[in-house]
């Protein structure tokens, strides 16, 4: 039962990763692409981490998975912000 839940969570997370990647490839400009990528991948990562945490053998492992989730989410949000801010600055300079 636990196996099934873990597996379905990981698969569900993978679906979000694929959706995010499709968005990255198909959306028209950099802001839409970032939007698709950061949000869909953030959710996908959380689902995969949750699935893996269900299969963890000790509390230490769960703790490490939570840490990985936290820092990857933090880094990806910061990167998304930096890329978007940089692109906006470049757009303004291009128009000026």
């Amino acid at each position: 039962m636990l196996d099934l839940m873990a597996a379905s969570l990981v698969v569900f997370g993978a679906v979000f990763f694929i959706a995010g990647t499709v968005g990255l490839l198909r959306f028209p400009d950099i802001y839409c692409r970032l939007h698709a990528l950061t949000k869909a991948d953030g959710l996908g990562l959380a689902l995969v981490a949750l699935g893996m945490a269900l299969k963890a053998e000790s509390f230490g492992e769960v703790f490490r998975i939570v840490l990985i989730w936290f820092f990857v989410a933090l880094a990806s949000a910061t990167c998304g912000h930096l890329i978007a801010a940089y692109a906006r600055q470049a757009d303004r300079e291009g128009k000026a």
Binding site: F71, L74, A75, T78, H81, L82, A85
Partner: peptide
């Protein structure tokens, strides 16, 4: 030019 968000990220990590 890195924004305040970057500074917060650096402080946390």
């Amino acid at each position: 030019d890195l924004s305040v968000i970057w500074q917060g990220f650096a402080r946390l990590t």
